[in-house]
Write a protein that binds this DNA or RNA. Structure first.
Lengths: 203, 203
DNA sequence: TGACAACATGAGTGGAGACTCATATTTTGC
DNA sequence: GCAAAATATGAGTCTCCACTCATGTTGTCA
């Protein structure tokens, strides 16, 4: 269902053949394990799934966090591509909502998506690596706003916030498909132009 | 800022004076520690904060989970009261939105609120103890719907889902106050009657 | 006030998981 | 084929944490 992870040579000279092969095995295993059990899954489990000794995992990724980061990078690229593909054709608002829905759907099946988005909020350093996703989302949003379907005052930041929130929620709450639809519908309604313009309490 | 936790005699006969005092100390400490560091904080830290030996904590709460549960119970009651108080006066829609906002605000400062809501989604056993909060929220919602301010097809479940999501999001993303307002505004807009009635993609 | 039950203490146990390192194996350039 | 370098192995270390228990202390009630 997902393409094999990039074998991404690290800094220095080219990897030995077996090393390159193991690196891919480890990334693939980690992707599966973390998607299933979340970032608290043990490195040992990843090693077992990859058919590799624990030491090998730590040779390729000196820290568990490095391993997590590598996976996030792949995921981020995949999602950004997905967004760009959607923004190329079809109704702009539909494209945005479809992407949004798709992400939440993936989050329901895959913890990694949630963890990625959770990190997105924190790593707002300019030029940070997460920007690709943000920019792809931005293109979707702006196109929908130019088409007059989405309220113009909404910024990418809010969309990301809502996306993060929805994905987190879908994870922690074990939402049914019906609940997911109804909840997203409310959020989408809040983004459409023909919504009210009332103010929040005490504003 | 928060009232002392209920001293809640456990099952059997009345507690000895020192035991009753320690129980309260432990609950107070646990409330502070878990609010600050989340449910992963160590029991040892709670004991230290309470000025009590680790064994004493485990005498009162045989399991770390029992301690967590006791705190959640207090929190739940406090929040439900807060909701009921709001539902007694003022504009119905404003009351709902104020409660919503207040919860998110508290979540930004206190991890326990998030953890409580996360549990709310899962413990849907009928007659479960979390129902108090759900019912209080329900009263707020229905009143606002009867006033014609909130779309009638929205159910409590969706509101809880949105609430959970927003609180989770505010925790994981470190949202600024501005972002919090703008994001909640979108959600509230989606709940108001004069919103669009479009459908989600592929519906 | 004494005696006993209730309670407090905190060093200790067991388990889990991140990370290391001495040793064995494999790849590669010659 | 053959070193030498790169890599793989996995038992072992270290740290953290939930939970226990033998021993000491305190409240209560007659």
């Amino acid at each position: 269902m997902t393409p094999p992870p990039s074998s991404d040579a690290p800094g220095g000279r080219p990897l030995r053949a077996d090393a390159r092969r193991n690196r891919i095995r480890i990334l693939t295993a980690a992707e599966a394990v973390f998607a299933e059990k979340g970032p608290d899954a043990s490195t040992e489990e990843v090693a077992a799934r990859a058919g590799v000794a624990i030491g090998t995992v730590f040779r390729h990724f000196p820290t568990k966090d490095d391993l997590l980061a590598a996976i996030m990078k792949d995921l981020r690229q995949r999602l950004a591509e997905q967004a760009d593909q959607l923004s190329e054709n079809g109704d702009p608002a539909t494209a945005l909502f479809t992407f949004f829905t798709s992400l939440v759907e993936q989050a329901a099946a895959t913890r990694t998506v949630v963890d990625l988005l959770a990190r997105t909020g924190n790593e707002i350093e300019p030029g940070g690596p997460i920007r690709e996703l943000e920019q792809a989302l931005s293109r979707l949003l702006i196109r929908a706003q130019q088409a007059g379907a989405i309220r113009p005052q909404i910024r990418v930041t809010e969309v990301i916030a809502l996306l993060t929130a929805a994905c987190q929620g879908v994870l922690s709450g074990a939402w049914s498909e019906d609940l997911r639809h109804r909840t997203l519908e409310i959020i989408f309604n809040g983004m459409r132009v023909n919504s009210a313009t009332h103010n929040t309490p005490q504003d």
